[in-house]
């Protein structure tokens, strides 16, 4: 009589998160602050990306104790991260009844060739992408939501901008192609023809598309929204800043009123210290998280 785990139900939750801010939290107290600030969901994880970057080592799924503690604290959806290709971490997260799984490049990949077959799960997945082909490969594997990757834990929005512009620019180029050209476009993007055709026809990805990676200010969030994001993920940017509660609330307001410069000016005022950012050239090739995933 009732059917669970359908694509419509999976992508439907992402539709409900649109126009909102999903915040990284590492404990119940932070989850409470995020919910109070108006976050539309929280991402439960062991360490925020800035700390993963600083500490090094293998980054894995969070301890279930932590996830449960956060689930008991808030009523908004709770997401959690699994390593790329680590389908057993995903099975565990499904058993914990998290609301969304992020198969994330922020954690250390568990499989260097394959991502998780997301069609096997009732719980929906969000995946990162740096370009259109990568986004469509994830959707082909069953992702119900996409986020542009950016470069997590840097407080530098430049990579998020690059990835959003790349995805949206490639969508516009597909729209200008004739039917015959779409076949070669599918090869070029290494993506299924059906999905390429769908994007060319509709002018958008078939699932909700958020931005992530390096957002630190209300202006960063509003810029991503103006570029065409459906909503934003903010990781280290909130709890690595001087006044997380105030910054979180300001970023929520900026995401709603992304086209209203008067509101943006007001919410950007007197926020205290933002997280210290990292210039991309300081990271080097080995320091990039965005190149994980294939």
């Amino acid at each position: 009589m009732a059917e669970t785990g359908t694509m419509r139900v999976k992508s439907g939750l992402a539709e409900m998160l649109k126009g909102g801010v999903i915040m990284d939290v590492t404990n119940a107290e932070q989850a409470r602050i995020a919910e109070d600030a108006g976050a539309c969901a929280v991402m439960a994880l062991e360490r925020v990306p800035a700390d993963i970057r600083r500490d090094g080592g293998v980054a894995r799924m969070a301890d279930p104790t932590k996830i449960r503690e956060i689930q008991e604290t808030v009523t908004i959806p709770v997401m959690a991260k699994a390593r790329i290709g680590h389908f057993v971490e995903a099975q565990i997260l499904e058993a914990l009844e998290v609301d969304y799984i992020d198969e994330s490049e922020v954690l250390t990949p568990a499989d260097e060739a394959n991502h998780i077959n997301k069609w096997d799960f009732k719980v929906p997945f969000v995946c990162g992408a740096t370009n259109l082909g990568e986004a469509l490969r994830r959707i082909a594997e069953g992702a119900a939501m996409i986020r542009s990757k950016g470069e997590a834990g840097t407080g530098n929005v430049v990579e998020a901008t690059r990835h959003m512009r790349s995805i949206l620019g490639d969508i516009r180029r597909l729209q200008s192609m004739d039917e015959n050209e779409l076949y070669s476009a599918a090869k070029e993007h290494r993506a299924p023809y059906d999905l390429i055709h769908n994007v060319a026809e509709n002018g958008r990805l078939p699932v909700v598309t958020f931005t992530a990676g390096g957002l630190a200010t209300p202006a960063d969030a509003a810029m991503m929204m103006q570029l065409g994001a459906d909503g934003v993920f903010v990781g280290s940017g909130i709890f690595k800043s001087g006044d997380p509660a105030q910054r979180a609330s300001a970023i929520v307001k900026a995401t709603t009123h992304f086209n209203d410069a008067a509101v943006l000016a007001e919410v950007s005022t007197g926020l205290g210290e933002p997280m210290v950012g990292i210039e991309m050239s300081e990271l080097g090739e080995d320091g990039l998280l965005q190149t994980r995933g294939w």
Partner: peptide
């Protein structure tokens, strides 16, 4: 929670045609 989200056919008052509800 989300794993329990579902679609179901609903009987709408005064309408013989069922309606799909996405919950």
């Amino acid at each position: 929670r989300q794993v329990a989200s579902f679609e179901a056919a609903l009987a709408l008052a005064g309408d013989p045609e069922p309606l799909t509800g996405v919950f």
